[in-house]
Each structure stands twice: as structure tokens, then as C-alpha cells.
Design a protein around this nucleic acid. Structure first.
Lengths: 112, 112
DNA sequence: TTGTATACCTCGGCATGCGAGGTATAGTTG
DNA sequence: CAACTATACCTCGCATGCCGAGGTATACAA
């Protein structure tokens, strides 16, 4: 009865965030909006996904952060590390493999 | 340190199994091998994934099963239901949306 | 009789997505 | 001034779901 398919994305937050940060330094809130915009609305991660993901990635050495004040509010900018870039490459090729595998099955029909 | 990225697939078992069964009736063990073959090795789900998934889908009315003996062994054939087909359509379009969203982000670069 | 292939199954851990809720500042609008 | 919205960060805990490990049983070959 669940109208929503809650899980069709796993590992995807890590992949796309790394990809965004590979382009340029960003702070969390900014990344959340960018994700939505660049994916044309297809992807949208709540803060309950994004912030824990950023913290986990920093703890694993994939990102480094620095604080910066902007009009009374604190922004925490994240920058990708060399290790993060290597991780991004692995995740990207993993994604391609899975994606192509799924496409092969979706496109497979014995009688078309 | 985890060399493996254990999760880049979620909801995918349900999607691809439904897609296979939309083509023709199959039993579990058969589906497992077909999945691997058709996806050209990119996808491969252990029995700890497959059987629970089949049971869950049957419980939700997406599949119906029948037993059949084949050389002393029991095979349980699963057939997709109309409800299962509707589910397949929703999952497929969900997959496309996510997939295109990811591609957009992977392909996004400001300085290429 | 040991091993391999077929064919089914369950249990438990681990990771993760994600909503819900919380804090705080700045600016706008009635 | 009070209320609201936007910005910007955060944590907790539930639910889902992947997946390895282990278990049962038959048939056949080495």
C-alpha cells in the first residue's frame, strides 16, 4: 500500500555530493539546493540525509571542512580530498556498472 | 577502508525481478541465474536477497506462485500479477528519473 | 563417500535513507 | 513589536532492505 518507493537510491547521496564537491567547495545547505537544481528536481535529499552524509565522509577522510561566517550565520564549507576523488572514481564506475546492468534487464525481452 | 561499496542498489532487486517475471514465469533459482546472465554479470543477488524478495512480493500481491516437481526437487514458479505490472511501471519510471538525475550531476561540470 | 549442482529456506547484523524535531540568526511584513 | 520566512546548522530513532552465513534435501558423478 505504500504509494512511495522509499528506496531506489542507496549510495547515491555519497556519489552525487562527492561529484558536486569535485567541482567546487560548497557548504551543506548550498549543496542541498544545488543537488535539486542540477538534477532538475529528480534528486532531492533532506537535511537528515545530507548532514550525516557529510559528517561521515569527513570522518572517512573524503572531505575536509572549514567554517566561515556569513552575516551572523556559520557556514561550513566542504572540500574534496585526493582520497575523496579516488572514492568518487570508484563510486562512479560502480554506478555505471549497475546502471548498465539494470538497463540491460529493462530492455531485455524475448519477443519484441 | 571498506573496499567494497555494499550499497548502490536498493529497490533494484524488486525492479529487475519483476521485469524478468513480466517476460515469463520463472522459479527462484532460475531467476537468480537469469539476472546474472542478462545483466552481463553486472548484477548478482545472493539467495539471501532473492528468496525474501520473492516472498515479500507475493505477500504484497505482486506475484503468485505455484509448486511443481522436477526430478525429485520442488520448484516454485512465480508469475507476475496485474498489480505487479503496475508496480513494475512505477518502479521503472522511478528508476529512470533517478538515473537521469544522477547522470545530470555526473555530467555537470562548469569548466569543461 | 565425497563433492558438486540443483533448489529451497531463515536468521541476524549492518548500513542507510529519511522524517521529525531542535537551535539560532536575519530580514520582511502586517 | 510580533509573526513569519529563509537561512544554516544539528541529532535521534524508526523502518527498510541488503546480504552473508548457515541449514535442509535430492540427484548424480568421481
Amino acid at each position: 500500500m505504500s504509494d512511495k518507493n522509499p528506496a531506489l537510491m542507496s549510495g547515491i547521496p555519497e556519489l552525487v555530493v562527492l561529484r558536486l564537491l569535485a567541482e567546487r567547495e560548497m557548504y551543506g545547505y548550498e549543496a542541498a539546493r544545488a543537488l535539486k537544481v542540477v538534477s532538475a528536481g529528480a534528486l532531492s535529499f533532506g537535511e537528515g540525509v545530507l548532514y550525516p552524509a557529510l559528517h561521515a565522509m569527513e570522518a572517512r577522510g573524503l572531505l575536509r571542512s572549514r567554517e566561515q561566517l556569513a552575516g551572523g550565520r556559520t557556514r561550513i564549507y566542504y572540500r574534496i580530498t585526493p582520497k575523496g576523488r579516488r572514492r568518487l572514481e570508484r563510486l562512479t564506475s560502480g554506478w555505471r556498472r549497475v546502471s548498465e546492468g539494470v538497463e540491460r534487464i529493462l530492455g531485455a525481452s524475448s519477443h519484441e
